[in-house]
Simulated assay, not measured.
Amino acid sequence: MNKKIVELKNKLGLSRASFAKALDISPSQMARIEAGKVVLSDEFLLKVCGTFHVNPSFFTGEIDIDEAVSVVSPEEKKKQVGNRLKQMRMEKGLTLKELSDLVGLSDSQLCLIENGESNLTEKRAVDIVEALEVGVEWLLYGDEEKKYFPLNEKMAQWLWNHPEVREQIWKMMEDC
């Protein structure tokens, strides 16, 4: 992952200091990341993706850097996210008010997000995907393969509580 951070920083043409500043970390912390001395958390990688408009599949090796870096404007990205949010809300049969109550937003804030007039924060994205039971990669980046049955905290917790199923899955994965 650390090498991918360096690859991304270079692709974006950013210095260590400017990359670190955008992520609200120190340049010395960034140097430790580049050197591979820091284990990167999922939360940090999501922050990188959100800050630099990068598809998370880049970090899993599913796509290369050229596919991962968003070439759409931030305004267009907000509209795309808003359209996907509205589409799923309607598909689930929820009103704006019902979804806003579920995620702790005012209906006017949610309306602004749906209309592409306001940014969706990482925290709110997590709240929304949990309420709608979709993947964050789909909501934020349009990854259709990760739309349904998301690998999220809810699923991880369930698997921890069901070791027999976890073992079966683990054994199936060994065969891959």
Rank of each mutant, 00 (worst) to 15 (best):
K4L: 03
I5G: 03
I5E: 03
E7Q: 01
N10Q: 08
A17Y: 04
F19S: 05
F19W: 07
A20R: 07
K21D: 14
I25V: 15
Q29M: 10
M30E: 11
A31K: 07
R32F: 10
E34K: 10
V38F: 01
V38L: 05
V38G: 02
L40M: 00
L45F: 07
L46S: 11
H53S: 15
N55G: 00
P56G: 12
S57P: 01
S57T: 12
F58N: 03
F58T: 07
F59Q: 06
E62Y: 12
D66A: 03
E67N: 12
V69A: 00
S70Y: 02
S73Q: 07
P74L: 11
K79N: 12
G82T: 13
G82Y: 08
N83T: 15
N83C: 11
R84S: 10
L85G: 04
R89S: 07
M90G: 06
E91P: 02
E91D: 13
L94G: 07
T95M: 06
E98Y: 04
V103Q: 09
G104F: 05
S108T: 12
S108H: 02
Q109E: 12
L110V: 08
C111W: 04
L112M: 13
N115V: 00
E117G: 08
N119V: 13
L120S: 04
L120V: 06
E122D: 14
E122Y: 13
K123R: 11
A125Y: 02
V126R: 12
A131C: 01
L132G: 06
V134K: 09
V134D: 08
E137G: 02
W138N: 05
D143S: 05
Y148N: 14
P150Y: 09
P150L: 10
L151Q: 13
L159D: 00
H162V: 09
P163L: 08
E164Y: 10
V165E: 00
R166E: 11
R166K: 15
Q168P: 00
I169C: 00
M172G: 04
M173F: 06
E174N: 09
